[in-house]
């Protein structure tokens, strides 16, 4: 366990805990965009910056990926310097992604106004946080990546073509903080990243819950990830209900 102070409050956390998690534990609130608890952290958005006092020096660090590895760190989450750094990033985001509800909400929460000196630019939603890429990579499909660089950087399937290794699972859209990734569903098909996927419906409730390609990908992967043929017929919710029922009935039988 390592002890640190966050805005004057003392907390103890497991060694290796990220500053963000330690700060939240201490009751601080830090805005984030690219951070997702289920994904590796990348520190791409720079919205979660905090002031770190360590061994006599003071500097700004991205709290989402700075591990607490030593005793006596001191963190400030709401100083002038932190607000200036945060607000600068939010102003840049407002300029390019002003149409995004998530960015506007964040700006309102942090009391940031659009920079009047600079005209608003393209009305696009993608903030290049890389969450979709990390999610796709964590799934093992790796159908997405960044292409180009600087201003032109964008998330795209390889070669700018339809995503060959995509299984249509929507993990990318699920983790996207701004709703940039769009898809269509009609007539039992889902269209995303330039490809069509056949939806699989639950035999019990009739709701679509996966794609054929997604189930095939799970079957081909690690045995512990694969669903049994029985499980593949029902959506996760109905699966739980059925599991619960069989469990209770067996309990009754045993008695």
């Amino acid at each position: 366990m390592k002890t640190l102070s966050v805005d004057g409050k003392t907390v103890s956390v497991e060694s290796g805990t990220m500053l963000y998690d330690a700060a939240v534990l201490a009751g601080a609130s830090i805005p984030t965009l690219c951070r997702h608890e289920g994904l590796p952290h990348e520190g791409a958005c720079r919205v979660c910056m905090v002031e770190l006092h360590r061994r006599g020096t003071v500097r700004l660090v991205a709290s989402c990926m700075f591990p607490v590895n030593e005793e006596g760190l001191e963190v400030r989450t709401d100083t002038e310097r932190v607000r200036a750094a945060r607000n600068f990033v939010i102003r840049l985001l407002l300029r390019r992604n002003g149409d995004s509800a998530a960015i506007r909400r964040l700006a309102a929460e942090e009391n940031v106004l659009p920079d009047g000196r600079l005209p608003a630019l393209e009305k696009e939603l993608c903030i290049r946080c890389g969450r979709c890429i990390r999610a796709c990579s964590a799934n093992g499909t790796d159908a997405l990546g960044f292409a180009l660089r600087g201003w032109d950087r964008k998330t795209t399937p390889p070669f700018g073509e339809a995503a060959a290794t995509c299984v249509g699972c929507l993990a990318c859209a699920e983790v996207c903080p701004t709703g940039h990734i769009s898809w269509e569903e009609k007539d039992g098909h889902r269209r995303i990243w330039g490809r069509d996927f056949a939806l699989v419906c639950c035999e019990h409730c009739g709701e679509p819950f996966a794609t054929e390609e997604q189930l095939a990908f799970l079957r081909a992967g690690h045995p512990s990830d694969a669903l049994s043929p029985e499980e593949e017929r029902f959506c996760p919710r109905c699966r739980r209900i059925r599991a619960g029922q069989s469990f209770t009935l067996e309990e009754v039988k045993d008695r």
């Binding site: 990579s137 790796d142 997405l144 990546g145 292409a147 660089r149 390889p158 290794t165």
Partner: peptide, 25 residues
């Protein structure tokens, strides 16, 4: 060439998306 990127990815055991990212970077 596109085919070269596919072959490099297979040779090095990395996703095509990463090869494409580096090639365009």
């Amino acid at each position: 060439p596109r085919e070269a990127m596919v072959r490099v990815a297979a040779h090095m055991g990395i996703p095509e998306s990463r090869v494409y990212g580096v090639a365009t970077f």
